[in-house]
Amino acid sequence: MIPLLKKILRTGVITEPAVEVDIGPRQEIERLNDELLRILGRALTIREVDAGSCNGCELEIHALNNAYYNLEGRGIKFVASPRHADMLLVTGPVTKNMENALRIAYDCTPDPKLVVAVGDCGCGCGEVGQLFGENYATCGPVDNVVAVDVRVPGCPPTPLALMQGILAAVRRA
């Protein structure tokens, strides 16, 4: 137990604002977090739905919860059921085999709800979005299936871009 506690102490809080200039995105993360909290004033819950991605977007959505971005530490939480969610974070292209499941998840999310489409495939933009457009197996971008409030392009979008997208959706609401 003692080595474990020592490790925790030595690691410290890495989310704190830093004075060094070359930390890069750290100040931006802080600013986004503060703005999110100011707008929300409480918790935001997100249900992630992978409707056909290559799992690249999921890797970056996972990263949102690491100590650098610390989304959950700010009251923004990924939840297990759409019934508990304020926002759906959907990656695509939406496959035919997931179309129905996505609609059910959307219907299960209580109103008012927000939908953020994630990634070039989910947004239907960029070269990759074109390559993964509609075909016999896919319905194409997320807004071909459910109404989308905000799009976060990128292949995959960085955690910072995802934070900005979540913020943009909350601002609109």
């Binding site: 056909g52 991605s53 035919k96 085999n97 390559l131 993964f132 075909n135 016999y136 197996a137 896919t138």
Partner: peptide, 11 residues
Amino acid sequence: LGYQHKGVERR
């Protein structure tokens, strides 16, 4: 499985 089938081979 098969829920992620997006026709990659056809593409």
